[in-house]
Design a protein around this nucleic acid. Structure first.
Lengths: 255, 255
DNA sequence: AAGTGGTCTAGACCACCGC
DNA sequence: CGGTGGTCTAGACCACTTT
């Protein structure tokens, strides 16, 4: 009988099932299922996975395919790899607000109830600044959307969005029931990258009234440009958040 | 004579030279040089690269190696790939403050002159909250650093950092001359991932005095936890930025 | 010395795009 | 249809970490 001297127990990927006929790539199937297994605690934080060759064997895929799946989770900060040591599940208590989610999904994921009041949808000539960031001709028509966003009935933000009419057609119902990112996705425009500029200032009288805070209160301002996977600017937003009612969370990743 | 009907001219990677004996991986050499070429305009925005097989051939590497280089730049939003179409350089005017850079490097990259005044370096028992995010035992000693950061002589931020003494030893000179991220890197702790919570409030009397703004002025507050590549928390910061003197820029990437 | 991830190769087949 | 990126494979060698 062979007694192997395991330094620490390693974890196999017994729960992961892959479908070879599925249109979703194998490495994505593996990454998603492993992510879920970690989230559910089936692969405990701090534990060490079996080595890559074994894992690939267990799942009947090649090592590069398995590696690609693991790389995805490493980039998300869920796994850590070290040469000579192995692949470990990061011990981390809470976290992961992820990046690049719309406010609707973010509030919903946090267990709060998001509602939206669409104040206005209009079309107007784009200012030079807006035309520039959206890559449009100056004074070309741009769609402007203004919304008050609430969480559990309390206003958390006043949002003004500028959308290129050539790419995006706006549906009031979708904006009210879901969010802008949902609307973009339905039109095949997957948000892929966003630039954000965050600052703060005193609220204007109108802003204060719309979000229900005293005039002159501090608001968090965000200017954000969203690009789709083809590199086209699909949205530019100028938003005011009410500090205390909403915390702007981002996760930064090293290149 | 053969006349090929090129839909648009494609760009070869003539300027890229790779060293096979270098310790830096081939795919990284390619990615970095291609990135520089784009930044310098040698590969113009909007242009289309040669196809992957040709590029791999030009550089005498395999296709997977070349693809890995290109994937890096796609993830950074510099290139866009579409099946059947090719790989294009994203047409983009300014941008790219990148992510996860220290304030020192960020100011320097923006052409401003960063200086730092170290107010205090002390060691004290960690509060339960700080101990928790740093993964330390409650009331274990933690290093606290307080600094005023200036750009071109004008204060832009007041920073308080909590550092685990077991991982980080603090050097006042390095903090003054460079930055915290530089100090971490010198100790082999490469920042890899950071969680940020941004909000805003009125400045306290002390904060207002230290950054030179009227009492009660609005300040942008950031709580940030930085993790190294091994997933260990290496820093927790509670900072105040002066809006108008500094714009918090982040780039969000989809998973 | 043994075990691990890191890199690179050569080739294959497929899915999508525009003509 | 031809051209492009997207995926997957099987195997090789190397660099690092611990025993």
């Amino acid at each position: 009988m062979v007694i192997s001297r395991e330094r620490t127990a390693t974890v196999p990927l017994s729960g992961v099932l892959i479908e070879r006929d599925s249109p979703t790539p194998l490495h994505l199937q593996i990454a998603r299922q492993l992510e879920r297994a970690i989230d559910r605690g089936m692969v405990p934080a701090g534990s060490r996975l079996d080595n890559e060759v074994e894992l690939a064997d267990q799942l009947s895929v090649s090592r590069p395919t398995l590696r690609k799946a693991i790389e995805t989770l490493v980039r998300q900060g869920l796994l850590v790899r070290r040469r000579g040591l192995g692949t470990m599940v990061v011990a981390r208590p809470v976290r992961r607000p992820s990046a690049l989610t719309g406010l609707y999904d973010e509030l919903a994921a946090a267990g709060r109830t998001p509602t939206t009041q669409v104040l206005e949808i209009r079309r107007q000539p784009a200012s030079p600044a807006v035309a520039s960031v959206l890559g449009m001709a100056p004074h070309a028509p741009v769609t402007v959307v203004e919304r008050v966003r609430c969480a559990d009935g309390l206003p958390v933000a006043l949002m003004r969005n500028y959308l290129p009419p050539a790419l995006v057609s706006v549906d009031r119902a979708v904006l009210t029931e879901h969010g802008l990112y949902q609307l973009l996705r339905r039109q095949g425009l997957t948000p892929h990258l966003a630039d954000q500029e965050v600052s703060a200032r005193a609220a204007s009288q109108r802003e204060a009234r719309l979000v229900g805070v005293p005039r002159g209160s501090t608001v968090l301002t965000v200017r954000q440009t969203t690009y789709d996977s083809a590199g086209r600017a699909v949205d530019h937003g100028a938003h005011c958040y009410v500090p205390g009612r909403y915390l702007l969370r981002t996760t930064l990743v090293s290149p």
